[in-house]
């Protein structure tokens, strides 16, 4: 699929904000009374967690052909995941704002935590609906898997945790919580690294059951596209496909794993073994790396998605690493379609 930048920015940045918000409400509920986190930190983190989804929301309008009618997208929430995403994104932003307002105005703890709890529910619902939007398309095997929602939540939490840790180091230097959070970042980054690795492995062999024989309804093993019927590229060859060589695919996979998870993992481990240091700069860098890496990751997520529509144009799975089972298979043995 063609990676549209507005969607990439929306899903990545909203994910950072959601992850950060979830974490800071939990920290608020657990540690504010005992004084292990300061209101100053919570306020700063809540502001940052608001900025990310707002940028994402602004970007999402560039995806629409008719942004002024965007509000109509809430109508079919009963059946469309996209509709649900459109509802939960502003709901999350609104609850994030409400939480920030209650925190800033010094409202009773119960109200604030209740708003925070509702915000967490909205954030999780938003993760789920934006991931299911992709996972629900059963004609793209690389998307229609449980890995998609797991990864959306996991990568959002990882980036959010890194951003929250940076905020903790800046606003509460020398306090234990920043040190503890570096363990969390290390754990989440390691978990993400494993999950994305597994996803790349899954994608390399995710074939649709539907092949060119089914697409044409002809039971002949030799079917070759002779003419797409158009002299130039058009919607069906551009929206569903962006050419990428196998080498580029491999390189991008390494970059995604390295930039978004491996380097931040090393940084978090360094922080975990050096409790005395003030590491706001280190975690800001880690956050920047994760966000950059996730933008690459989301682009690759789109580009590795193979729509079965591509069968008609000879583009199906042209982008993805060949299944090792296919290249090793002896001639004449049945191959995946």
């Amino acid at each position: 699929m063609y990676p549209e930048m507005s969607l990439v920015i929306l899903t990545v940045l909203a994910g950072v904000g959601q992850g950060m918000f979830i974490l800071l409400v939990i920290l608020d509920a657990l540690f504010l009374k005992s004084g292990e986190v300061t209101p100053h930190f919570l306020t700063a983190a809540a502001v940052v967690s608001l900025v990310f989804p707002l940028i994402g929301m602004a970007a999402s309008f560039f995806h629409l052909g008719n942004p002024m009618r965007g509000y109509k997208a809430i109508f079919k929430w009963k059946r469309s995941w996209l509709s649900r995403e459109v509802i939960f994104l502003p709901a999350f932003v609104g609850l994030d704002m409400l939480y920030l307002l209650l925190l800033y105005s010094g409202a009773p703890e119960l109200y604030r935590l209740f708003a925070g709890f509702l915000g967490i529910v909205a954030a999780m619902a938003l993760y789920l609906s934006s991931a299911m939007l992709y996972a629900a398309i059963r004609f793209i095997k690389e998307w229609a898997t449980a890995l998609t929602p797991i990864n959306f939540v996991l990568f959002g939490l990882t980036s959010g945790a890194a951003a929250a840790t940076a905020a903790a180091h800046y606003t509460m230097p020398g306090m234990a919580i920043g040190y503890l959070l570096s363990y969390l970042v290390a754990f989440l980054a390691a978990f993400s690294l494993v999950m994305k690795g597994l996803t790349f492995q899954y994608n390399a062999s995710a074939y649709s059951d539907i092949g060119i024989k089914n697409a044409l309804g002809m039971n002949n093993p030799h079917i070759r596209l002779m003419d797409t019927g158009a002299a130039y590229a058009h919607y069906n060859t551009k929206e569903y496909f962006l050419p990428m060589t196998r080498r580029q695919n491999d390189l991008r996979q390494v970059l995604v794993l390295g930039i978004s998870f491996f380097l931040p993992l090393l940084m978090a481990l360094y922080a975990a073994y050096n409790p005395a240091l003030k590491l706001g700069g280190l975690f800001s860098t880690a956050t920047l790396l994760i966000v950059t890496g996730l933008i690459l990751e989301r682009r690759l997520f789109f580009m590795q998605g193979n729509h079965i529509q591509n069968l008609y144009y000879g583009n199906y799975r042209r982008n993805v690493v060949q299944n090792p089972a296919v290249s090793k298979a002896k001639p004449g043995t049945p191959q995946p379609k």
């Binding site: 052909g65 942004p67 008609y312």
Partner: peptide, 27 residues
Amino acid sequence: DDCIGCKYCSWACPYGCREFDEFEGVM
């Protein structure tokens, strides 16, 4: 009049039979 041009329907179509109009911003 109701289409917002999000292209989601074209992703859901297995046959690739929907085309986006860049000028009018509708499917």
